[in-house]
Design a protein around this nucleic acid. Structure first.
Lengths: 179, 179
DNA sequence: AATTATATTAAAAATTTATTTAACACAATT
DNA sequence: AATTGTGTTAAATAAATTTTTAATATAATT
């Protein structure tokens, strides 16, 4: 009997380990990664349960769970009667994927687009500037074109985000293809 | 005249800064991020040029450039006559995107799928085990189903990788949509 | 309103990661 | 074959990040 429990835990831990490992790659701290992977097999958890389960400090759990909320992998739930806050892990990986990458890509596209626009304006100034040597003008033109080209990519990234957010992408790539 | 040069450099640096900043988010070291962003505006570079340009040590440039090669953002080029190795940055962001994410997602799907398969086998053993209590069996069943559900996601991720690698995705989401 | 339970913030400690210096290996040129 | 130039590995240092301990704030219950 207790052997079955052990086996169950062992099997869970195997999955917890790999989920946490991949999350590490996504730039979350080990504490947050382990926490999410642990919560993936739980209905809901309080900060104190997290602490005992992972054997870590409460502030560590507090900051980890906040970070997980930011990337939409954990949600706060209201639990009637309890003073303790309770949290649930997002168990649908499609939703986690969408939230995480859309946020990241949108930010990236926005930031780079802005920098590019500003730089391009500067390059135009240099090109128009009569005190610029022909070599400088040629260089500025070349950079301008290179950046113009790269904008195609960022626009594409924005479109990708939009098609993920709207769910359109699943028309092209079905979640559950019937073969 | 030297004012134009200054302006040119300033504009470049603005873009270099944001590219490096976003790369930081992708889990590359600051040195590698700055290096790639710098190379983005260069035709090709040797290790010594990198060192002088970034003001860093040679081993740092060596390891950074190797990491950038691993994620396919930099390629080694043969330069006739020179003993120095020369490197070029991948300037097509579509190619960088494809290489980076496909590698990452493929690895993630593979690793997690393997762990899931193993865990599921264990859960089946527990379910079949006559010494397991009904509660344990129910728990094992529930976990089994949860993992089975998550496999849909990893299969989808594999399909996404395939459609990016084959270029099929660009039929659905054109690089340069004509409006 | 006071007390208690809970969560968060701030400062300190510990750990990890990135970078450099120094030593080594390799390859090319003389 | 020896020397010089170039790149890489290993150990040590430096820097940054993560985690903890301690203090504080917040909210709920009595």
């Amino acid at each position: 009997m207790s052997e079955s429990i052990e086996r169950l835990e062992e099997a869970k831990d195997k999955v917890i380990g790999t989920i946490a490992e991949t999350m590490d790659l996504y730039g979350v701290t080990p504490a947050a990664a382990n926490l999410y992977a642990t919560m993936y097999f739980k209905d809901q958890m309080t900060l104190d349960e997290m602490r005992t389960e992972l054997g870590m400090s409460k502030p560590s759990m507090s900051t980890s769970v906040r970070r997980l909320q930011e990337i939409k992998m954990v949600k706060k739930t209201f639990t009637r009667g309890s003073r303790k806050h309770t949290y649930v892990a997002e168990k649908n990986f499609f939703r986690s994927f969408m939230a995480f990458y859309c946020q990241m890509w949108e930010r990236e596209a926005k930031m780079n687009m802005e920098a590019i626009e500003e730089a391009q304006e500067e390059f135009i100034e240099v090109i128009k500037d009569s005190s610029s040597t022909p070599e400088i003008v040629a260089e500025a033109k070349s950079y301008y074109d290179q950046l113009e080209e790269s904008k195609t990519y960022y626009r594409w990234l924005e479109n990708l985000v939009e098609s993920i957010r709207s769910g359109q992408i699943f028309e092209f790539l079905p979640k559950d293809p019937q073969d």
